[in-house]
Design a protein around this nucleic acid. Structure first.
Ligand SMILES: [Mn+2]
Ligand SMILES: [Mn+2]
Ligand SMILES: [Zn+2]
Ligand SMILES: [Zn+2]
Lengths: 151, 151
DNA sequence: AGTGATAATTAGAATTATTCTAAATGATGA
DNA sequence: TCATCATTTAGAATAATTCTAATTATCACT
C-alpha cells in the first residue's frame, strides 16, 4: 500500500511553484496525460492525446511543457538510440527495457542498492550525478503494459 | 600484457569478410581513425579527421562505413540524450561517463560479473540482448583522456 | 585483358525531431 | 487600470541522419 511519492496531479502546482513557475491548463493536461497512460509517449503522441481535451494547444507548447516538467523533476526524458525522446512520470529508481519487436518501453524497478552498486565501479575522480540503465531485447507479450496499473 | 581481443586494424578485413563485406580504403581509414584517437568522435569529427588522409571521401560514406563497422561488431554506437551519435572501438564490456562540463565521454571498464548482476533485476519474460550503463556528471581534469593509451 | 554482375561510394535532396523567433495572449499585483 | 512578466503560439530554422540515383570500383569468369 505504498504510494508513489509525487505522482499525483496535485503535486504539479507545488512543484512548479517551487521552481517559480505557474500552473497552467496546458501544463496540467499534459501531466495528466502522462499519468493516465504510462507507456513512454513521444512529444507527438502526447500532442495527439492532449488534443482531445484541448484542441487548440500547439506542438511548441507540448515541447515547452514537457521540458518544464522534466526541469521540475516530475518527469524523466528517456532516449533510446536516436529515436524521439519519450516521457516517463515514474519517479522511482528504475531502468528501461526496449522491446525491439514492438517498439514498446517498459519500466524495470530497481532494488534500492543497485544504483549504488553500479556507481561503485567508477574510479576516483568521477562524480556521477545520475546513472541510467537501459536494456534492449525481447519481452514476452504477457509483459506488455496492462491497463494503467498505477500504484 | 593482455591485448584487446579484436581492436587491431588487421582484424578489420576478417570481420568484414565474415559478414560478406569487402575491405575498402574508406572503411580502413575510418577504422584507423577510430583506433588512433579513442575519444568517441561524432560522424562529423570522424569525417574531419579522415579527410587529412583521404580528402575526397564523402560524408555519406563516413556514415555508411561507421554503420558497417557497427554491424560487424567492431565499433559501438554511443548515444547520449539527443546528441549526435558517437563511435567507440572499445570492445570490452564498459559503461560511458559523460562529463557535463567538457562534453567529453569516458570509458568505464566493468568488472566481469556486473552486467550479469544488473541483468538479474529483469523479471521473468524479459530477455535482454544488451545492457547499457551511462553515467552523467563531473570528472576531474586528471581523468581526461590521455594520449591514446591503447592496451 | 575484356565483360558483365555486384558492391561501394558519392553528391545532393529529403526527412525528422527539435529549437528558435517574434508576436499574441494571459496572469499578477502595484 | 496599467505595467510587467510569463506563457503560449505559428511558423521558420536547424541539425543529424537517411535516402536516391548516378558513378565508380571490385570481382569472377572467360
Ligand atoms: Mn531508453
Ligand atoms: Mn552515452
Ligand atoms: Zn520509465
Ligand atoms: Zn566507449
Amino acid at each position: 500500500m505504498t504510494r508513489p511519492s509525487v505522482t499525483t496531479p496535485d503535486a504539479l502546482a507545488q512543484r512548479l511553484a517551487h521552481s517559480g513557475l505557474r500552473s497552467t491548463p496546458q501544463r496540467e493536461v499534459i501531466y495528466d496525460v502522462l499519468l493516465k497512460k504510462r507507456d513512454h509517449p513521444t512529444a507527438d503522441e502526447v500532442y495527439a492525446r492532449v488534443r482531445s481535451d484541448m484542441p487548440s494547444i500547439s506542438l511548441a507548447t507540448v515541447y515547452n511543457c514537457l521540458e518544464t516538467l522534466v526541469q521540475c523533476d516530475l518527469v524523466r526524458a528517456v532516449n533510446f538510440e536516436r529515436g524521439p525522446t519519450r516521457y516517463c512520470p515514474n519517479l522511482r529508481p528504475h531502468a528501461h527495457f526496449h522491446d525491439e519487436q514492438s517498439g514498446s518501453t517498459h519500466d524495470i524497478d530497481l532494488p534500492p542498492d543497485l544504483l549504488e552498486k553500479v556507481s561503485a565501479v567508477l574510479p576516483p575522480g568521477y562524480d556521477a550525478k545520475s546513472v541510467e540503465i537501459t536494456f534492449r531485447g525481447k519481452a514476452l507479450p504477457s509483459t506488455e503494459p496492462k491497463a494503467a496499473a498505477n500504484k
